[in-house]
Amino acid sequence: METEIDRMKKMPIEDFLARLGHHPVQRRANAVWYRSPYREEKTPSFKVNPEKNLWYDFGEGKGGNIFALAGEFIRTDDFLAQVKYVAEMSGMPLPEHEPRQSSGVRQAGGQSFEDVEILPLQNRALLHYLQERGIPSAIAVANCKEIRYTMHGKRYFAVAFGNGSGGYEIRNPFFKGCVPPKDVTLLPSGSTVCNVHEGFMDYLSARALGIGNGEDHLVLNSVSNAAKAFRYLDGYGRINCYLDNDEAGRRTLEALGTRYGERVSDCSGIYGGCKDLNEHLQKTLAGRLTQHENEKKSKSIKM
């Protein structure tokens, strides 16, 4: 039976390095060249063989598999420490158990969350996951937590976003779920305007884009929770909706419009052509990067 360690060992070293912010300088047959990711150098001497999934640093005269590479980053030969580092950086479940606080067992759709522990968000792999989706670390840390839990005897970790009833929406690159109870999340600031988002990734995207600064925000955490939002939305003079551009989003907008009439504004035009606000954020950032690169090329040509 394949173990978690076996799966980690098979993770492409190129993907692992990319998660850490290191990208190839040159590609050749059966060889990808980098500047050493763990020491300073100008001439690339760090080689990855994608076929064998091995690396070799000609400058240091050493190489090996992904665990040996992790050892170079954290400066240790301790195998368990290397495994832990790979797990944290790749968002994979930890194969070993760590001492932790137990929060009992919670059920969600037949899934059992055991030994639930809520911590400040600081895991680098999780922060990198959010950054890949356009969410700056400062916004993520200010609005989210880190959850560690056991499921089916294995230990996992994810980004956690709390709701009004003590439950959490949880995300990592491989899993999307909820630690119940399920509920909406109100983020008040004393405004008479409330911005409604379908999921917490859209709310974080709004923060990143500067949407609704100084105003209240409400995250449905699922369109099925729309009725639960009424107890909060009834008191607002204006309700700006940033719902998904799909059938479920349109039905929810209609339901809110039926209840609140002209107080409801459909703001989905801001991200027309995108499924949701987070997709719009990612495309906006990609466009800015392309523009910046084109400007650099233009300047170099003129020089």
Rank of each mutant, 00 (worst) to 15 (best):
F58N: 08
G91R: 08
F58R: 03
A87T: 04
F67L: 15
Q107T: 07
P93E: 06
F79Q: 12
D115L: 05
D77H: 14
E60F: 10
F79T: 10
N53T: 01
V86H: 06
K84S: 11
W55I: 00
L54W: 01
E117C: 09
S102R: 07
S112N: 09
G61T: 07
E88C: 11
D77I: 02
R106A: 03
L119E: 14
S112P: 04
Q111E: 08
E72R: 02
D77Q: 08
Y85E: 11
G64W: 00
D77K: 11
M92A: 12
N53D: 03
A81H: 05
A68Y: 13
S103T: 09
R75K: 13
G71K: 00
L119D: 12
E117V: 03
F113G: 01
K52W: 09
D115A: 05
Q82D: 04
Q111M: 06
E114W: 00
P95S: 10
S103L: 11
G71V: 00
A87G: 08
L54T: 05
A87R: 04
E98H: 15
S112V: 03
D78L: 04
Q111G: 01
Q111N: 10
L94T: 05
Q111F: 04
W55S: 02
Q101E: 15
N65R: 03
N65C: 04
Q111S: 06
Q107M: 15
D77F: 15
E96R: 07
D57S: 11
E114T: 00
I118Q: 06
A68V: 12
V83A: 05
I66T: 07
S90K: 14
L80C: 11
G71F: 05
M92T: 08
M89I: 15
Q101F: 15
G109A: 06
E51A: 13
E96S: 15
D77M: 06
S112Q: 14
P93W: 02
G59V: 00
E114K: 07
F79H: 13
E72S: 07
E96G: 10
F79E: 15
E60W: 13
E51R: 14
D57F: 02
P93M: 06
S112G: 03
N65Y: 08
S103W: 11
V86Q: 04
S102V: 06
Y85I: 11
V83I: 09
E96H: 13
L54M: 09
R75M: 10
K84T: 10
G71T: 02
P99K: 07
L54Q: 06
E60T: 13
R106Y: 11
Y56Q: 07
F113T: 00
E60V: 14
T76F: 04
Q82P: 00
A108Y: 15
F79V: 14
L54G: 01
K52Y: 12
Q101M: 10
E117D: 15
A70V: 03
V105S: 10
N53I: 01
Y56M: 09
A68P: 10
L94D: 09
S103G: 14
L80H: 12
E114L: 02
P93K: 04
F67R: 02
E60G: 01
S90N: 14
L54R: 09
L80A: 15
Y85H: 13
R100K: 13
A108G: 13
K62V: 12
E72W: 02
P93N: 07
P95C: 12
I118R: 02
L69D: 00
F73N: 03
W55G: 00
G109I: 08
F67V: 11
E60Y: 14
